[in-house]
Amino acid sequence: MLCDLNIGFPLSDFNETINNDQLIEVKKCINTSIILGYTHIALNFKPSTTTSNSNKNKISNDLNLINPINLEKDFSEFSGKIKIFTRITIKIDDPSQCQNFAKFQQIFDIVAVEPLTEKSFQSAISNLEIDLISFNLQDRLPCFMKHKTLCSAIDKGILFEIKYTDFLNNRNRAQSISNSKQIIRASRNRGLICSSGCSFNNSNLLRNSINVIPILKMMGIDSNRCNLMFKDWSLKVLLNGRLRIKSYKQTISISGDNGLLDNSLEDKNWDSSKNNKINNIKQNINTYKKRKNDINDNALDKILKKNKVV
């Protein structure tokens, strides 16, 4: 089982629709991932902005219209070959840009942020319910990576992403390696995942984990943890994201394939019947409380009769 949680999606606005040429390029990336042995991938939607009031970038109040990635319509032919998930990565340079995160957490399987300043980085760790923190490794990091800060995020379940395509680019390759080593040092080699970060029209940059592990080992990560970055730790990100939007009052659905619920196995009528299910649960709780009070009253009567009080 191999995971690649960052394959670029061509759209950058919430109200755009994908055209045929772009769809063909995305499917080439997915086919290449299948050939390389990947079993779980995530299509990464990176909106240009989330705070603009213009009609072009305005976020709809209808949750069904927020996610431009339609897996059932555009990628149904990959069912049974590879599991495809949706991801959103939001660039933030000010904590005030995080007002729409509640909507994203209900729609996308993975919610990631790319902080641009130290203030936004601290806010993402302490205030946001997210799955991943990613950086543009070709530029300078927004702040110095401290062990205490990164470990507090990892303890909350937030993992950090390293993109190996930043090492393949000739531009600022030394800066990418330096930034990655700083993240690895501060995290103490844990809480990391490795993904491609490949754009939708550059499927030739995709690599198998066997080709990437030597680069990670060169930066100080042992072989076992290199494999965890592509397997168990990446799967943990998927599980955290899926449980966030598909669990209700600690009740979850489990499939027979590694415990991960696929999109094809979801109950499509859940949203329409959610209110009915909640009402039934409330009725059952009220019935239980009533029955519990009756039991307590009967027990009290027996005690009183035993002691000849009544």
Rank of each mutant, 00 (worst) to 15 (best):
L159W: 03
D139H: 13
F101H: 02
F108C: 00
I125P: 01
F104R: 03
H147K: 15
D139W: 14
Q106H: 01
A124I: 04
K103C: 02
Q122A: 12
C143S: 15
I162D: 12
Q105S: 09
Y164R: 06
Q97P: 00
L128N: 09
I125C: 08
L137Y: 06
I154G: 08
K103W: 00
S152R: 15
L150I: 14
A124Y: 02
F108W: 06
T149A: 12
P115G: 11
E118V: 04
F101G: 00
K103N: 09
S126M: 07
L128A: 04
F104H: 01
I107F: 01
V113E: 10
I107M: 00
D131W: 03
I162C: 08
D139G: 01
F144I: 15
I162H: 13
I158C: 04
I110S: 01
I125D: 09
E114N: 12
D109N: 12
K91Y: 11
F121Y: 13
K148Y: 12
I125A: 04
Q122F: 10
P115Q: 13
K156E: 05
S120E: 08
E114L: 11
L128D: 08
F167K: 10
K156T: 07
I130D: 05
E118D: 12
F108M: 03
N127D: 11
P115W: 11
K156P: 01
S120Y: 11
D166F: 15
S152C: 13
D109G: 04
A153G: 10
F108T: 03
N127A: 05
E161P: 13
F101M: 07
S96R: 11
L141V: 13
S120P: 00
I92L: 07
D93P: 00
Q97I: 02
N169E: 13
F108G: 02
C151K: 15
Q99C: 01
K163A: 10
L116T: 10
L168N: 03
F121K: 02
T165A: 06
K163C: 09
L141T: 09
E114A: 06
I133P: 01
R140S: 15
P142Q: 09
D166I: 06
D93G: 10
Q99Y: 13
V111Y: 01
M145L: 13
F108I: 07
V113W: 01
F101T: 02
S120F: 09
C143M: 14
D94R: 11
F108K: 05
Q99R: 07
K91V: 12
V111T: 09
E114S: 13
I90A: 13
